[in-house]
């Protein structure tokens, strides 16, 4: 079983952000970077599938400048077999531009399963995986919280509003991963050593047209400072009064 997982390098979301002087990006000083949350779940799920099958290998792909090589190495140290960097000067915001480049790499790669995160945690488009599936003409299940492959067929649970959906689909296919599947493992020391010798190929990204760009970034307006109106059940009448007369929600 050949699996490809597309991973994005993103800053850690803890702490607060500052806007860079350009006004169109976050200030990168002091930020820690890692595999985007859902993409990490996808890597873990892919590794578990090959381990369970006792066969197959996982290739990780990331589009970006040379800094993504560190992100790819991390995935190799978790147990992925190969890595591909799709090189570009700047990662575009446009999901179709990214999807076109990933699809060009995936096309003809002979993968049984191509995996994505449900969304990247910085851009939060939630679009690239669905777009790649359409470009490749493959069936797609978006937002899987459970995933299994058996006798050449996939089954998954996908999260929908108010519940879940159990689905089955033929391979090759594309899936995107929601949380709930698996917490990503920490690379072992042995894994980190082994990763240094694993193949990491860099090639030029064939980006699609860029039609969606960031023209401004701002921090959201702060909510008015919170107000504590009292302590214990004794504060309830005042709360209800405020909800009726001030907030007008009762």
């Amino acid at each position: 079983m050949k699996i490809a997982v597309c991973i994005k390098r993103v800053p850690d979301m803890e702490g607060s952000f500052r806007i860079a002087p350009s006004g169109t990006a976050v200030d990168e000083t002091g930020l820690k970077w890692d595999i985007s949350d859902f993409d990490g779940y996808a890597v873990e799920a892919a590794l578990q599938l090959t381990e369970k099958a006792g066969a197959g290998e996982v290739t990780v792909i990331s589009l970006g400048t040379d800094v993504v090589q560190g992100t790819l190495r991390k995935a190799l140290s978790m147990g992925c077999a190969k890595a591909v960097q799709l090189k570009c000067d700047q990662v575009p915001f446009d999901p179709f531009a990214i999807a076109s480049a990933l699809a060009a790499e995936l096309q003809g790669g002979g993968y049984d399963l191509v995996m994505f995160g449900k969304m990247s945690i910085d851009s939060a488009n939630g679009a690239v995986g669905l777009m790649v599936a359409d470009i490749l003409g493959l069936p797609m299940v978006h937002g899987c919280s459970k995933l299994d492959i058996a006798s050449g067929k996939g089954t998954a649970r996908r999260e929908i509003e108010g519940g879940g959906e159990l689905v089955s689909f033929p391979l090759p296919a594309v899936v995107s991963i929601d949380e709930g599947i698996a917490r990503p493992r920490y690379p072992s020391l042995k894994g980190i050593m082994a990763a240094k010798k694993k193949p990491l190929e860099a090639k030029a990204a064939q980006l699609g047209p860029v039609r969606l760009t960031v023209v401004k970034m701002e921090l959201p307006a702060a909510r008015a400072a919170g107000r504590i109106i009292g302590e214990g059940a004794g504060a309830v009448p005042e709360l209800v009064r405020l909800l009726q007369t001030e907030a007008k929600v009762i």
Partner: peptide
């Protein structure tokens, strides 16, 4: 974006 910590204006 950025888990709601940044508002991006897009063209």
């Amino acid at each position: 974006g950025y888990t709601g910590k940044v508002i991006q204006t897009l063209r």
